[in-house]
Write a protein that binds this DNA or RNA. Structure first.
Lengths: 224, 224
DNA sequence: TAGATTGTTAATCGATTAACAATC
DNA sequence: TAGATTGTTAATCGATTAACAATC
């Protein structure tokens, strides 16, 4: 009922995780392209080179989301951007709250470019009474007791958890009770949530550990 | 020359990205298990259930890093943890600096659990003269001009970039010139780096976009 | 036209799962 | 022993790549 079918493909495609990530990269690259240099076209080979992947994969991805290119010339940037926006649903706004007014919460609150992807932060909450009412990355910190009202009134569907791990499950429970359906979890605790709730864990240390791993074994080229 | 061969497998295994992530998850789960409840054993099925993957995959992964289980009983937690530490090289300390003393930089500086994975933050840097010397997440902010000295003297090999996108390439260049070999990039700019440098981009919005995507299409179960 | 690039199929590669004999 | 769980091979599944005719 909201699958927007201006172009040829209204078919409900169920993108795997890895493809959503690629689309985001394409989007990002092309968006910065068309700001700067920008002819208004881009070829699969250009994108592929930038991302260190095969050009036919790019074409396949773009075909899948219904963009048509032009033989001999490539793809119109605007077509690609538009198709990605449509596929990922950027135009359907989602509202989010941040729970946990620590440094990380602050960083996310003042981040700003979430808008661009259709997500709007509409409140920051914290349990600590002394933090309540303080201004914080452009938001006034609210007490956890106001969470249910805000979530209901504004139709919030995402809770961004930037609380310490011990507090994470409780925060998640409150948010879910209030009506949230998705959780972006920055505490690295594993959450138990009911069926149907979408959770995305952003387990920072995993990134660092992977970087570390690659570094420790990259014996060659070292000590330049 | 430092491939630590206490157990049977000194063979240089080159883990793919996805397996490193799984190992980190195993590590994390088992570590929290053995803190709390903990018998000191764990079965492949337990781990698999927690992670929503197949139990034979767990056994395969563990076999690959040289852990032996015990038929009928599972794996000794300590064996698994030790093997993962060895494989990912946690005991080989790596030093890192944070460039960019903003909120995110602060969050990472005060994060604390990087130690656990063998990475030690040993300085925070910023270009803004008025920030220099301020205390920040336990570190005194240093001017960018001190970067080369610190990197050299302390043998720093990772730069964590928490600067705005416009400043990212420059910060990366300075860090690389100073001798860093790996970059953990939180600015979402794409960096150009010479051959052999290890870069890991932590492009926040990608996580959010993916969460959003799954949420927008999870029509069922919504509006509980 | 000649040159470039798409769209798409078939081939390849790699990762996950199923199955089960061996072990404790 | 009976029950549980490993270790491992073969089968399956899915994703990437190679190749090339069709198109502009």
């Amino acid at each position: 009922m909201d699958s927007d079918s201006r172009t040829q493909e209204p078919k409900e495609l169920d993108l795997r995780h890895v493809m959503v990530e690629r689309l985001m990269h394409y989007y990002h690259f092309i968006a910065s392209l068309s700001n700067n240099t920008a002819g208004d076209s881009v070829t699969s080979t250009q994108i592929a080179r930038l991302m260190h992947i095969d050009d036919s994969l790019v074409r396949k991805d773009l075909a899948e989301i219904g963009v048509r290119g032009h033989s001999g010339h490539g793809f119109r940037c605007e077509d690609v951007l538009e198709a990605i926006r449509r596929t990922l649903g950027f135009s359907k706004r989602l509202r989010a709250v941040i729970i946990g007014a620590g440094r990380l919460g602050g960083a996310l609150a003042s981040y700003g470019s979430f808008q661009q992807y259709g997500v709007e932060i509409c409140g920051v909450f914290d349990i600590a009474p002394h933090k309540v009412r303080l201004m914080f990355g452009g938001y006034q910190i609210q007490p956890m007791t106001s969470l249910p009202i805000v979530v209901k009134q504004m139709g919030v569907c995402i809770a961004i958890l930037t609380v310490p791990p011990e507090a994470a499950q409780d925060a998640a429970n409150r948010a879910l009770d209030a009506g949230v359906r998705g959780i972006w979890n920055f505490s690295n605790a594993s959450l138990e949530v009911p069926e149907g709730v979408v959770v995305r864990n952003e387990h920072m240390s995993i990134g660092l550990a992977e970087l570390g791993y690659r570094l420790r074994r990259g014996r060659m080229g070292h000590d330049t």
